[in-house]
Write a protein that binds this DNA or RNA. Structure first.
Lengths: 393, 393
DNA sequence: CAAGCTAAATATATTGCCTGAACAAATTAT
DNA sequence: ATAATTTGTTCAGGCAATATATTTAGCTTG
């Protein structure tokens, strides 16, 4: 529990991390800038940079490329360092029940390749399932022009509790297959380190990184499509709970005016079907409900009102206990859910003393893969100096 | 955001923290033990110890005191170091609406002095209120035989949201007075650093330290007397939320079978009064209800059943979303609440898929002061090398 | 009781890393 | 061209930790 002891050699590692962190957050950094941002001396900064160049993490720009730099500063031109963003890649996976989506991103997090693969059927054997995931990864890598050896880490999201150590409870018969099975398979096939996480948790990471929750440290993301699930960031850290089930919303069964953890799309379908449906008697798609409401259809509008009331109660219950600064509605349904925001926002103060800002995610159904990329990058950044890069040049 | 850079001199500080941490958790530590626990060389360990002795944090035992040591080991006798637990003290305050309780503890956390002071009336002016708190502190110190100068930090709990920085929202008219007013007063009078926290949060710290949640990293403590409030430890860290309102239970208004955040004592009173009361028609005290139930009184037993059902729902709602390993019922009512445990435990699986262990706190109404002491000690331990000790020898 | 054994403390040399200052280099301004 | 300016490079110095050898303190034993 007490602080770990440290040796002089450890300083270099800490300082290298520090410099690398600054360079990562900067487009191009000069030695002088690095001195200012890290507090180190020039000599130390340069020594660290040389080291990072040797290891392949950063790159020195040609002195002569400063033409477009705009500011013709005087004095000796600075050496300029930038992240070698192609030194490696990460994979972000969204392991759905029916589909796997893989995204390849470089070290800056720019997505450079994608691929989606559907499972043939629901009950296919584990080996086939793993094979489909592997194919999605390979195709995404091919799309990015990257080799499997270039993958430094794989983040993967699934719709089940995942504990802090990235393990899926064995009681989750279906999903635990993805844990041991998939992890070891990808490890053995490609040598990849696979980091599992709950999909809503990854959505929260993604939303804070590239979504409407940019920079918000106390953020809740509700994956709200079929089944409600929450990813909770408190003080910038993901909540897991003892067995990774933090953010599960089974308690909604007990909440008045809610009664289940059904999501927006699911409810829209149920309710439009129950009401006889606007056009046919069949089960209208969730999207159709929102379209009809936009067209002024009264039955659809009534459903939106019910959805707003329900979501307000859901958000209020979370906001009351967690007190986030912001709650984001995410998932494929997020875009449609925008119309619910005024209603939700208006109702919130009725249900909680601490109403948060409520937004919808701009990330669409990429929210989990974006978060998975972030999760993998977090790992890579934390372990940069332990990871060996496969340099191709 | 990136790691801060470090210089060689900083190593000494880190290693001193490390050694001090080990000594704190050990009764008496020898150089060899410290080497094993910290990974440092003997020379380094000894150098750090000399430094810590000079600063007053630790003390070397006389070589000749090893008589009772039991194991007459061979070889050169080891130098033995122990925490100088009387090098300073901390104060733990429970700032109630009607009463202030102060506890004085040494650096090991052993409580060596206590005092309680009641406020003359509810609406007394701020200055008088602060004066009463100050008197409680002085008397507790006198009780401990400690001087105000020896106080290294003051932890203080109050029944309002307190954010991560120990600030009370100004919208809390009553309690915000304790923030600026009390903090600056104690700072100016005695030079004390006052660390405010929510009382339920401190209860959680206290319970994990000295209660039934010893060592549990995912722990929820419910202060359950008059009004329910939760302190949540997730992965060993307290949850605060954006404005410190994490753990507030206003959402219970919306939970079926609960409907309010009234606590056990409050409900026992309400329900026994409504039922005509077992003996008189008046408002029976909460304690009386539990006594009557123990005597087999049917009306009282019915009330306990209702309480069990209600608490099961409350605990289930928290357990569902936070997934703690354990939930502790704390506060003055905890002892009585023991009889509710079987009922609660039996009902839990009906309301949540992830039922936690449920216990009652053994700390009684000292739970907040114990937590406040722990909170203050956390600060002292984190800042040990920055704090100057007032050495009296 | 002296010699021997053992575990721990101390002393000394060495290494790693950062700093600071002096010096060199590469530009722009005069 | 020369000065001014900014940055890069080199090297001695300091600090902290390690490694190794030596000394010390108590116990054991012949």
């Amino acid at each position: 529990m007490p602080h770990a002891a440290a040796t002089p050699q450890l300083l270099r590692r800490v300082n290298a991390q520090s410099v690398l962190g600054v360079i990562r957050n900067t487009d191009v950094a000069t030695g002088t800038e690095l001195m200012a941002r890290t507090g180190l001396t020039r000599a130390s900064v340069i020594a660290v940079c040389e080291d990072l160049i040797r290891r392949g993490w950063i790159r020195e720009l040609n002195v002569r490329d400063e033409d477009q730099h705009g500011s013709p500063r005087k004095g000796r031109p600075a050496r300029r360092f930038e992240l070698n963003s192609r030194a490696g890649f990460v994979l972000g996976l969204d392991l759905g029940a029916a589909t796997t989506t893989a995204a390849v991103a470089d070290l800056r997090g720019t997505v450079v390749g994608r691929s989606s693969e559907r499972f043939r059927a629901a009950g296919i054997p584990a080996a086939e399932r793993i094979d489909v995931v592997d194919r999605a990864c390979r195709r995404a890598l091919a799309d990015a022009g990257a080799r499997p050896e270039d993958v430094l880490a794989v983040g993967a999201g699934l719709a089940a509790p995942v504990d802090r150590d990235g393990r899926v409870l064995v009681t989750q018969q279906f999903w635990s297959l993805f844990d041991v099975g998939l992890r070891t398979a990808l490890q053995e096939l490609h040598g990849w380190t696979v980091l599992l996480e709950n999909d809503a948790n990854l959505a929260a990471l993604g939303e804070r990184w590239r979504g409407s929750g940019a920079g918000v440290d106390d953020l809740v993301v509700l994956l709200a499509g079929e089944r409600l699930g929450a990813g909770v960031l408190e003080s910038g850290r993901l909540l897991h709970g003892r067995h990774g089930a933090a953010g599960e919303m089974g308690y909604l069964d007990l909440v008045e005016g809610v009664g289940s953890s059904d999501g927006i799309a699911s409810l829209a379908r149920q309710w439009s079907a129950a009401g006889g449906g606007p056009a046919a008697g069949g089960e209208a798609s969730a999207r159709r409900v929102f379209e009809d409401a936009a067209a002024g259809e009264p039955a659809a509008l009534a459903i939106l009102d019910r959805l707003s009331d329900r979501m307000a109660r859901v958000i209020a219950s979370v906001a009351s206990f967690i007190n986030p600064e912001q709650v984001v509605i995410g998932g494929a349904v997020a875009e449609s859910a925008g119309v619910l925001l005024p209603g939700i926002t208006a109702l919130l103060p009725r249900f909680t003393a601490t109403p948060p800002r409520v937004t919808v995610s701009p990330l669409g159904d990429a929210i989990v893969t974006v978060g998975a990329v972030r999760h993998a990058l977090n790992y890579v950044e934390a372990n940069a100096l332990e990871l060996e890069l496969e340099l191709r040049h």
